[in-house]
Write a protein that binds this DNA or RNA. Structure first.
Length: 267
DNA sequence: ATGGTGGATGTTCCA
């Protein structure tokens, strides 16, 4: 069986519900992980999403900011027992178990703090929060030494490789590509994950998933970053079939500043 | 060095 998992920072689920239908039409995913839903749980548009073919939903939202959701065509079971990351009560993580050929598969959906503008943990509490968050995530995942059948996706808000940003040299001091962030993200991944997108796209190629709203012509200037990621445990690498980064979504009407990313697993 | 845009909110915060 094939399982296609998509991740997208939708930047307001209620505003961009029509774009969710576009994503489904374009990628035909089995599971969709969303970040920045910006919708409290009691206002979650579950019926509308069920009507799009995704009746199985896990969501965790709050008013105005953050918020994550996992939408599935087939049943999912929410997983519990995770930290309240950094003790903030934020809605930045959800995990579910999917039934799949060969046994269940765990799926984590993360929205890592953006980290503010100043890349200094003493001057900027948001940057400290970001570094602490990824360190706590690293420590949590390190507790299981040989994790299996696990997929981790999300807006991780860090572009770890030189070609994950439009200019490595110019972004070394910009939050999302600074050495403490990329080292922190690499340490998290090193607890037992493979970068599934770079499995398909050579590290020598520039590859982005986000382009700022503040560029007049995002495609021409192409000052992008790869902030959205899909990781899999090594036992799933032989199942990796394909990767799609839906760059055209950046030109959709009322676009998000992030585009959807998907991988297909043949399980 | 600066400011540029967008979403949710409410007279500003977050990205």
């Amino acid at each position: 069986m094939t399982l296609r998992i998509a991740t997208w920072n939708i930047n307001s689920l209620r505003l961009r519900l029509p774009r969710l239908a576009d994503l489904i039409a374009a990628l035909a995913p089995d599971v969709i992980c969303l970040q920045e839903t910006k919708v409290p749980d009691d206002l979650f548009p579950a019926a509308e999403i069920a009507a799009l073919g995704f009746p199985h939903i896990a969501h965790r939202g709050m008013k105005g900011y953050n918020g994550v959701a996992i939408l599935a065509r087939r049943p999912i079971a929410a997983l519990a027992g995770f930290p309240d990351w950094c003790g903030k009560g934020d809605c930045r993580h959800l995990a579910v178990r999917l039934e799949a050929a060969g046994g269940p598969l765990d799926l984590h959906n993360f929205y890592v703090p953006a980290g503010g503008d100043i890349p200094d943990r003493d001057a900027n509490p948001k940057f400290a929060h970001k570094l602490d968050f990824i360190a706590e995530a690293r420590d949590f995942f390190a507790r299981v030494p040989a994790r299996r059948r696990t997929v981790l996706v999300g807006d991780l808000n860090i572009a770890p490789l030189e070609n994950d940003v439009w200019s490595h040299r110019q972004l070394l001091g910009v939050v999302s590509h600074t050495p403490p962030e990329t080292a922190g993200l690499n340490a998290w991944a090193a607890t037992g994950f493979i970068d599934a997108v770079r499995h398909f796209v050579p590290a020598e190629e520039k590859h982005f998933t986000w382009w700022s709203y503040r560029n007049r012509d995002w495609r021409a200037s192409d000052r992008g970053r790869r902030l959205d990621h899909i990781w899999v445990t090594p036992d799933l690498v032989p199942a990796l079939q394909a990767e799609t980064t839906l760059k055209d979504a950046r030109d959709w009407p009322l676009a998000s500043d992030h585009v959807p990313v998907a991988v297909t697993l043949d399980l």
